[in-house]
Structures are given as structure tokens and as C-alpha cells.
Simulated scan of single mutants.
Amino acid sequence: MQADDYQGLVCSRWCHWSELALQRIARRPLAAGQVRIRVRHAGVGFALSLFVSGKYQRKPPLPFTPGTEVAGEIIEVAPDVTQLRPGQRVAAALDWGGIAEEAVASADTVYPVPDGLSLAHAAALPITYGTVWAALAWRAALQPDDTMLVHGASGALGTAAVQVGRLMGARVIATASTPAKREAALRNGAAHALEPDPATLAAAVKALCPAGGADVVFDPVGGDLFDASLRCAAPGARLLSIGYASGRIPAVPANLLLVKNLTLVGFNYGYYIGWGLTDERRRFAPRVQAMVAEIMQAAASGRLAPPVLQHFALRDWLDAVDTTMSRRAIGKVMLDI
């Protein structure tokens, strides 16, 4: 018989992430369309800080448990859920609630994990790799033999972008802030790894690109690097604005877009999984389910290199979050629960 509560990380008031606490959480009945998961692994991302401080565009009801990406086994399904079953290995994209021994997810954003793929690797795929795959395939139309410039190439999104870009046939130029991170990007499949110096980046990229620059820019950093990316881009390039880890949201001089025929593409994966101003997850569920299944199969078969992970125990959640927020992580920070 299951206990009527479980352990998880709890945000009781809007606060700094270091003020969170592990607590016992009372189990609640499932609502229609929901699935209960025994969590084995939970990812940690930059958005956690915004969530718990009340600065994210969606504010969960207090108290709540942060964490949006998990993998484990299904414990229970609501009566109207027929495509999933108890005991099934799954990964899930959550609204929140992931950093706990159990989590409740909408069945629309729960994804079966194929044999041959570990749950730890699977936990990183629906959101981190889903973001990258959808951005490159759906929005940037990445083509074989394109040259792609990836900023923040040793972080979770950047690492995934290098791997997925290579799988899609692109030549990848990475930027990363330290020699160790640049070496990690090269091991991960980048053809070149450069310092992210806005003053010298354009010349360095153009020296590597016969077409005069990168065909696609994947930018989760923003700030000065985005400004430099406009100069790094080849005529006709597509620039993906994914996030602003630098802390500065850049302004775009539209004349550069005009002169170089550039396409600036904003991409918010949350729109497809229910995190938008309106909840569109059901409308996009077939498309996202098919994409995540393709990612899972690519990882299980070895066509896609496994996610690069840094593992922490749940009791070490403070170190795990600090590693993420201080940008010391190489790859994805994963809590083993």
C-alpha cells in the first residue's frame, strides 16, 4: 500500500531558490486526464529561479513544488486515460511538481520511454531536447550542410543543440566561456569551439565560413552575444532567439535584418506544451508526441548521442541548483530521486 504522502522540494512563498525546503507532501486524487509518476530523475533548469521568485509568466499556486521534467514509472492513471498504463516507463513535461518522489502530469505531455534508453537520459529529452529539435526543425528549417553557430554550447540547451545539429547534418561552431567547456563542446561533436568574445567573434566565425557567416544561429544567451551574432550571420541566415541567460534582452537594429536578408525567429517551446497565455497542449499533443518519440528512438538507437548529465542526489538539491544557476554545469543537471 502506498503512503499518503511523499517527499519533495517545496516553495511556500515567493523567495530566492536557496530558501526552498524538502518537506512531506500530501498526495491528492488525480483529476481527469492526469497521470501519477514515481519519479526516478528530475531535471534542474534556469527557469526554476524565476518560478520560485514569482517572476515567471505563469505563477503556480502556493505552496508548490518546482521542476518541469521527470522520468520514472507510472503509478496510477485517471479513469479517462487509456493510452498509458501503470508500470510503464515514461518521461514527462510538467507545469511544475517534478522535484519530488512523485509527480502528477497531464497525459498529453507524458511520453513512453523505449527499451534501451535509460530513465536518466530520457528525463532530459521531452523539454531540453524537445526545445532544440522543434526550434531547428520547425522554425529554423535547419538543412544538411548548413553551418550553425551555437552559443552557450556546454549548457543543457547548448549541448543538445550541438548534438541535434550534428544529427541533422549541420556543421556546428560552438561558443563556450572556458577552455574546459570548449573542450566539452568539441567532444560533443562541434567542429570548432570559440571564445564568446563579442569583439572578436564575427571575425573568428567568418574565417571558418566560406559563405561569409553562419546559416543558423542558436542563441539561448542573448545580450552582447546576440548583438555579435548579427555580424556573424551569413546573408539569408536564420537567428533563433531561445532565451536570455546573460540577463539582458537585446534590442534588434532592423536595418541589419534588411541589409543581410536575415530572419529573426523567436521560439517558445512552452507554447506547444501548455505554458502559453492559453493552454494549447491538447491541440499540439499529436505533433509533440510524434517529435518526442522520434527523439527517444534516435537516442535509444545511438543515432543521437546520449544527453550529457551531471548527477546529484535529492538531498543535495541545493548544490544541484547552485551548479545550474552559477553556470558551472556541463550538460544537464539531473537529480536522482
Results as ranks from 00 to 15, higher is better:
residue 113 V to I: 10
residue 7 Q to F: 07
residue 99 I to W: 01
residue 65 T to W: 03
residue 181 K to E: 11
residue 189 G to D: 10
residue 54 G to E: 04
residue 29 P to K: 05
residue 325 M to Q: 15
residue 38 R to P: 00
residue 132 V to I: 14
residue 192 H to M: 09
residue 45 G to I: 05
residue 204 A to C: 04
residue 144 P to I: 11
residue 11 C to E: 07
residue 189 G to A: 11
residue 316 D to G: 05
residue 51 F to P: 01
residue 261 N to V: 06
residue 190 A to M: 10
residue 264 L to C: 10
residue 241 S to F: 02
residue 17 W to L: 12
residue 182 R to H: 06
residue 319 D to A: 15
residue 134 A to Y: 07
residue 228 A to H: 06
residue 160 A to C: 09
residue 93 A to M: 09
residue 294 E to S: 13
residue 142 L to Y: 02
residue 2 Q to Y: 04
residue 75 I to K: 00
residue 82 T to H: 13
residue 123 A to T: 08
residue 24 R to C: 08
residue 168 M to F: 13
residue 148 M to G: 02
residue 22 L to N: 03
residue 219 D to M: 09
residue 199 A to H: 13
residue 236 G to Q: 05
residue 232 C to Y: 02
residue 238 R to I: 04
residue 265 V to Y: 00
residue 155 G to Q: 09
residue 138 W to I: 00
residue 228 A to Q: 05
residue 298 A to L: 12
residue 231 R to D: 15
residue 2 Q to H: 12
residue 269 Y to W: 14
residue 309 L to V: 14
residue 20 L to M: 15
residue 47 A to V: 14
residue 313 A to G: 12
residue 258 L to E: 01
residue 326 S to Q: 13
residue 299 A to K: 05
residue 70 V to Q: 07
residue 59 K to G: 03
residue 25 I to T: 05
residue 81 V to H: 07
residue 64 F to C: 07
residue 58 R to Y: 12
residue 104 V to A: 04
residue 73 E to H: 14
residue 61 P to L: 13
residue 234 A to W: 01
residue 274 G to C: 11
residue 135 A to T: 03
residue 23 Q to G: 01
residue 120 A to M: 13
residue 280 E to M: 12
residue 268 N to M: 11
residue 113 V to C: 02
residue 13 R to Q: 14
residue 248 R to A: 14
residue 229 S to M: 04
residue 209 C to T: 04
residue 210 P to H: 05
residue 239 L to I: 15
residue 104 V to P: 01
residue 290 A to D: 09
residue 147 T to H: 00
residue 53 S to E: 10
residue 279 D to V: 08
residue 78 A to H: 03
residue 103 A to F: 05
residue 28 R to V: 14
residue 129 Y to N: 08
residue 53 S to H: 02
residue 27 R to L: 14
residue 101 E to Y: 04
residue 215 D to L: 07
residue 133 W to V: 02
residue 300 A to N: 07
residue 23 Q to A: 15
residue 62 L to N: 09
residue 329 A to L: 10
residue 167 L to S: 06
residue 42 A to Y: 06
residue 91 A to H: 03
residue 302 G to N: 10
residue 287 R to L: 14
residue 125 L to W: 02
residue 188 N to Q: 14
residue 217 V to A: 06
residue 208 L to D: 03
residue 118 S to N: 09
residue 107 A to W: 01
residue 105 A to H: 02
residue 31 A to V: 02
residue 262 L to W: 02
residue 54 G to M: 07
residue 213 G to T: 00
residue 87 G to S: 13
residue 321 V to C: 10
residue 324 T to I: 10
residue 298 A to N: 10
residue 114 P to V: 10
residue 150 V to M: 02
residue 200 T to C: 04
residue 293 A to N: 08
residue 324 T to R: 06
residue 294 E to A: 15
